[in-house]
Design a protein around this nucleic acid. Structure first.
Lengths: 360, 360
DNA sequence: CGATCTTGCAGAAACGTAACTGTCAACGCG
DNA sequence: CGCGTTGACAGTTACGTTTCTGCAAGATCG
């Protein structure tokens, strides 16, 4: 008894052995009582729990992680375009997605760590992760490669290209979404549909653009598009202007990125084009501002909340070794929220009461 | 796939003792060589480093955290309104702030963990934090109290009210910002300024509203305001409509929340009010869409990037015990971005009678 | 030339927890 | 009455680091 004396470390927080001493039991009993593990009478369990509460005992997360090999942390990696750690343009999408992902992780007892793909390696290796969500991984992302080499589960938002070794992925059917959207515009009377796209090579931009080109070829329309670096908001306004200034000006435009809607509206005003009478408009956005613009703009929603939730569920299933019935390759349907900007005959009166945005 | 098993005969990844064995040195030497700690000749350092690389050795973050007591993780706590883990309305602000915070943390070797204030306690105690950023802590936030009891540094975005024990805080001078903004509107010709505010009791809403009331009393104007639950985007549109439907309709409005600008623009159109001729408009927003609306809307920016950076710098200073010269209570200036919506002389209007009270 | 100092490294003690392996009494059973 | 069984714990080891202490061998010095 005198041998196992609690050292003079009264300074720090109460440890498990302080609780054991105060409760008059062994460390094992405390651990079992608090974790509901061993076979103990309820009286002992209650007693230990009460003493632990009284001492304000909190188990050390580091020690638990070291012992069990599970940290309860999952990484959220964001691809980067500029020198900033996050994507700027897709941020409404990312924000919603991250929000849903955090929510879903939390519900299962995990926390999310934000880790830009370009971050220094020492930061990555300094945090114990149980797995990672990767948003739109590039072809030979060194971070993903390294994580896979460590044997960590990886789930990506966006289907992986090339040899990216992911455990599972979730994505929209971008091609189908674009084709459907272009058909919608054509049905509304568009004769020549233009595209506002990006110069980067991420999957979303690439698939959407090639779907547009395919569609053009199918219906025999000459492609009319402008590409700009999507991370630069000013470049988007300039590109919108350029698109409407072309001699072969389109009578309908689809913008791939969130701010394209307002930029195109502004450009249309500058050229005296009425929307939707002279120009039909659709853009991909998760923002609710397009419900209240003049006119309201039809948007394509990628359902980031569903994606964020699905990605996290798949990842945690993989971490916990659960043989879930969820498919490891999930395609989330998109939603076209049709508003006045893509309908030739607008039924809206100017005095209609505000409507709640559909979706969700 | 990659089953390059070093001769350590250990099942998992290579540990420090595998490196030591492979390099023919002791564990101490490996640790010192990799961390640049002890006194070793460069030859040994290089050799150890090379062997570690060859084995793909990554030190265990959990073990390091357990030993050193530092995890390199800082929490980012977000107050919650609804059942979702994040604030919805202030999300543009939050997104920018979180982005800057992540960036700043990363630059100093730390990573950010997103932890909603309402999360279950076991998640909080399951992650080893070195400190926490708290956004707009409420009066007796149990999470903050618990973290403070553990002796963790806490820095808040928004000055703490009551007895919230924070190490430091960063905030805007909301009162000054609102007063300045109202003066700006009055100088532009506003006779009766309305306010679109929230029903929640967070510091931002409270301070801004009381500043508005103070200003009204000072200049002798009857307050004209509508309050709505800020987390509900639909309620915002309704409240904007109500505000302009009042018999004592204001000729200028300040909206406290991000979507108020587009909602007010839409409401003004419904009532046939021209902006800025019949109605001056300002809203608090970090969004760039207001540069491209019709007309462009004057916005108040709270400078979330500066706040996020400042908060993280203060927190890491406190964690590392650096006696920095930074003040522990920082006030970040706001910026009023003046656009057409708050200026009476508009180049586009040709024959507008000044202030015709009712539209149509 | 012995005493002291430096250099270069090895041994071992923590860090706080979870889990495996005893131990000891009470108990049922043939 | 002997014997396996079970309940209720205690002892101890291992997780993978960092770091404090120790200890030879060579360098320096009075």
């Amino acid at each position: 008894m005198s041998r196992a004396q609690p050292r003079g470390s009264r300074q720090g927080r109460a440890g498990i052995r302080d609780v054991a001493a105060a409760a008059g039991v062994s460390i094992t009993t405390v651990s079992d009582a608090l974790n509901g593990k061993g076979r103990l009478p309820d009286a002992t369990r209650r007693h230990v729990r009460e003493v632990a509460d009284r001492l304000g005992y909190r188990p050390s997360a580091a020690a638990r992680t070291l012992r069990t090999g599970k940290s309860g942390l999952i990484g959220l990696t964001v691809t980067t375009y500029g020198d900033e750690p996050f994507t700027f343009t897709e941020f409404a999408y990312f924000a919603e997605m991250a929000r849903a992902a955090t929510s879903a992780a939390l519900a299962r007892g995990y926390a999310l760590v934000i880790l830009p793909a370009t971050s220094r390696h020492d930061v990555w290796s300094n945090v114990a992760l149980d797995g990672t969500v990767v948003i739109d991984p590039s072809d030979h992302d060194p971070v993903v490669t390294e994580l896979a080499r460590q044997g960590l589960p990886i789930v990506s938002d966006g289907r992986p290209t090339g040899a990216v070794p992911v455990t599972a992925w979730v994505d929209n059917d971008h091609e189908a979404a674009v084709l459907n959207l272009l058909d919608h515009l054509a049905a509304a009377g568009a004769r020549r549909i233009g595209l506002l796209t990006g110069t980067s090579t991420d999957t979303y931009t690439r698939l959407s653009t090639s779907a547009y080109l395919d569609w053009c070829e199918r219906v025999g329309q000459e492609p009319v598009y402008e590409a700009y670096p999507a991370h630069d908001p000013c470049a988007g306004a300039v590109a919108a202007d350029r698109l409407l200034a072309r001699p072969d000006r389109p009578d309908a435009v689809y913008g791939l990125f969130d701010p394209n809607g307002t930029d195109l509206l502004a450009a249309a005003r500058r050229y005296g084009l009425r929307v939707p009478d002279d120009l039909l408009l659709v853009c991909c956005s998760e923002s609710t501002v397009y419900a209240a613009t003049e006119p309201p703009v039809t948007t394509l929603s990628l359902k980031p909340r569903r994606i964020g939730t699905a990605v996290v569920q798949l990842l945690i299933d993989a971490i916990e070794g659960i043989a879930s019935d969820r498919p490891v390759e999930q395609v989330i349907p998109t939603e076209l929220i049709v508003r006045a900007s893509s309908q030739r005959r607008s039924p809206r009166t100017t005095i209609s009461p505000p409507r709640s945005p559909s979706g969700q």
